[in-house]
Write a protein that binds this DNA or RNA. Structure first.
Lengths: 342, 342
DNA sequence: GTGAAAGCGCTAACAG
DNA sequence: CTGTTAGCGCTTTCAC
């Protein structure tokens, strides 16, 4: 009874005793089909559980009503963003395809160009690129970038106020009385990472606190790399009393390292993150961090993209959302340094 | 210089001065291409930034090396699961496509059948169905279900020990001294929801505590529906002193409703959730909940699916992972009821 | 070693 | 109103 393999338009046509073209017309509600034929074809479609192949359709058509979200990996930031894209897609008539490179193992740099090339023109009408690694993704297909690569780019972009957020984080630590404040920086090729470091340096500078080179270590937004960086930062006798990490995952890694080293957080070491992903509240102690409206960023990105697809034009080409500090339990005034400190 | 529209195999062929067939052979590393031709074509591919269209390829080929994850919506549970699928996909040579219906607005029931129909046979080699709404998705394509629909199904399945988890949650509340314990149930068509209710009832029964009908309200795993259900549960004078919600999102909704009603959590009302999604730690107070190893479930689902695709067979067809209680701050011994209580 | 031609499932002219 | 035909981008026999 059930078809062992995919039921195609040809099966429907055969069973309904009409041509393939007629079935296609019925599916697409084109004029010029007799009421009776229409009904019969519809019945067969129902009976066979036929559904047009997205692949075949999109090979033939220009439009697919499918939007692609291209991510390098599925981690807290990108998945949080996905929730926002889902919010925005409801009721628009578009569907969502998320394509994931499967982490850094596959292709280093330029994954989004490759994916775009593979999917665009067919399958998707446009794409949201999440933290793309290249800047010159010029295509005729509508594209919106979230947290883009550094460098000049004319792509419509969504990001948040990284500079201000980093300033807030650093000023918070300075305000608590910290002077020796280290930083775990992000992926150097991303604008967001550069701005976060810049904000940190600016706040330190304004407070008249010098930043020694060894206080800044590259965490690359990556938990594993951040662990090594945190070790370098916290190992020496001159370790900082506070650390600002460029994202929450690095901050959590730093807390783990601190614990391994026998340091208490926040008593011996204050830690501030960035992003405010849900996970930041899960760690012990709950993380003080900078909130980025990630879901909203996803939402706005999709809205912008749909506008771009529909009108080909867009009013504002760069949207920056506000960041704000969220104080939890991982920050504290610095303890008096005792000779016992290793 | 840059192609204004998609560069196809035809463009490559023309520029390299060979036939389309030859380019295809080069791409697929088939034998029978002169070394020199091979090099020239490769150079042109590089120059033009050509990448084969996934759509065209998969229309022609049986295998695509792409796995589909089909979800009804992108919410905390499914996105957490996605992280697990990403963990599992690394290094397998497969890529991940997630397809989202975009929430309940689109099609009520049977979305997964529709999607499967649209994608399977073409585009994806197999699929993971997350909380599918129907049980008879029989297809020749390999399929694994996560948290499936109720009813007999021979689909390979991943779930967690819902019955035991619900028991733990309820016994925790009973142990604190609660007797009037309400429940916000899940989506009645899902096995998980039924088992969670069953576990609750069993624990209550074992403790000799009767369950009055009005103590059980359907939250459908949906925050909005759960708000109404919670209102019904908490409005009356005989309101429970504790609520067990079938998932974290409902539990969080219950806490919101309690707050609106002027009830303090946990002093006036204890709340336990289910899932332990990251968000559960974010709410105030942090939620006591039942941990489901969601990421692991995603991981196992993908592993099982790949096995199924490769071997056509699979050793175990139903994997159930353990659940455990995570006590946070939303539960407490019941307060003495005073006449002031509304 | 290379290219012409057929066909994957579908849609859009165009004839009949 | 309906069916025939061409072709989307690609792979694969099969001649040359």
């Amino acid at each position: 009874m059930l078809p062992s393999s995919r039921v195609t338009i040809r099966d429907v046509a055969a069973r309904a005793g009409v041509s393939i073209a007629t079935v296609s017309k019925v599916i697409n509600q084109r004029y010029g089909v007799a009421e009776e034929t229409n009904a019969r074809v519809l019945a067969v479609i129902e009976e066979l559980g036929y559904e047009a192949s997205l692949v075949a359709q999109s090979l033939r058509n220009r439009r697919t009503n499918v939007i692609g979200i291209l991510v390098a990996d599925l981690e807290p930031f990108s998945t949080e963003l996905l929730k926002g894209t889902a919010d925005a897609i409801r009721g628009t008539g578009y569907e969502l395809v998320i394509y994931s490179a499967g982490g850094r193992t596959s292709d280093h740099v330029g994954w989004e160009r490759r994916y775009l090339s593979r999917l665009s023109g067919t399958l998707i009408d446009g794409a949201v690129l999440v933290t793309p690694t290249v800047t010159d993704v010029r295509y005729d297909a509508p594209i919106v970038a979230v947290d883009p690569h550094t460098g000049p780019s004319d792509l419509p972009t969504i990001d948040s106020d990284n500079l201000h957020g980093a300033r807030l984080a650093t000023e918070h630590l300075l305000g608590l009385g910290h002077r020796r404040i280290g930083m775990l920086t992000g992926r150097p090729d991303l604008q967001s990472a550069q701005l976060r470091e810049q904000g940190y340096r600016a706040a330190m500078h304004d407070a008249g606190v010098p930043v020694e080179p060894e206080l800044v270590q590259e965490g690359a937004y990556d938990p594993e790399i951040a662990v090594d960086a945190a070790r370098r930062l916290l190992a020496g006798p001159l370790r900082p009393t506070a650390v600002f990490a460029a994202n929450d995952l690095s901050a959590i890694a730093a807390i783990d390292v601190a614990r391994d080293l026998g340091l208490r957080v926040p008593e011996d070491l204050s830690v501030v993150g960035f992003d405010n992903v849900p996970e930041s509240a899960l760690c012990t102690p709950p993380l003080t961090t900078v909130n980025q409206p990630i879901r909203q960023m996803g939402q706005r990105a999709v809205e912008l993209l749909i506008q771009l697809i529909r009108d080909g034009q867009v009013p504002s080409t760069h949207i920056t959302l506000a960041t704000k500090l969220v104080v939890r339990r991982s920050t504290h005034s610095p303890a008096e340094r005792t000779p016992l400190d290793h």
